[in-house]
């Protein structure tokens, strides 16, 4: 007997959404498949890696260990809600705080949660905060530096190029 579908209402990245889910679906599956928010990654699907971290009511949690139905009425934020102008995202880019970028969405959401609580976290606090997010590429150093920089309102190193302009407006030349 297939499971009965349940209609779930929740707020995702500022939008009220209603989505039909099965009780056995995780928030991760609903985000990635149901809502096509594939920014959130799956690295293990059993709570060991942190790649699926999203903010649930502002707290970084593992979407792969969250039943979607228990998110009724709650607020979910995924990496799709961030922009490249976001100082944190910008600091990640400036510091090379990601290489393959597969752990990065989870890492960013963990960092978001941290920065919302501690304005200027120490490096030790940052290391603790991201200790549930595994990264296989960077060795973590640049990630810690990027989060510290964002906390201090710095973007990165001094010789950084400015943020590339957003899509510039353009006027076609007169023929």
């Amino acid at each position: 007997m297939p499971e009965a579908l349940v209609t779930l209402s929740l707020r995702v990245n500022g939008d009220d959404v209603r989505v039909a889910v099965r009780p056995s679906q995780t928030l991760l599956e609903v985000l990635r498949v149901g809502l096509e928010l594939t920014g959130t990654k799956q690295g293990c699907d059993k709570g060991d890696c942190g790649a699926c971290t999203v903010l649930l009511d502002g707290e970084p949690v593992l979407a792969c260990l969250t039943l979607a139905v228990t998110c009724e009425g709650r607020v979910v934020q995924t990496v799709e809600s961030l922009t490249r102008e976001d100082p944190l995202v910008d600091a990640f880019d400036c510091h090379g705080a990601g290489q393959c970028g597969f752990c990065t969405p989870g890492m960013l959401m963990t960092a978001k949660g941290l920065l919302a609580k501690h304005g200027r976290p120490s490096r030790e606090t940052i290391k603790q905060a991201i200790s549930g997010n595994l990264c296989r590429c960077t060795g973590y150093g640049p990630i810690v530096e990027a989060i510290a920089a964002a906390g201090e309102g710095r973007r990165g190193k001094k010789d950084e190029e400015p943020l590339p302009a957003p899509l510039p407006s353009w006027e076609a030349p007169k023929p």
């Binding site: 990635r32 498949v33 096509e36 928010l37 594939t38 920014g39 959130t40 990654k41 799956q42 995924t78 990496v79 799709e80 961030l82 922009t83 490249r84 995202v89 990640f92 880019d93 400036c94 510091h95 090379g96 705080a97 990601g98 290489q99 393959c100 970028g101 597969f102 990065t104 969405p105 960013l108 990165g156 190193k157 010789d159 950084e160 190029e161």
Partner: peptide
Amino acid sequence: AGRRGDLVQRALGSTRFTDDLH
């Protein structure tokens, strides 16, 4: 020693990794 450059697309979900394709 510039930006990583391509990280933003990967980080924010615009890059489609294989499992992101449906």
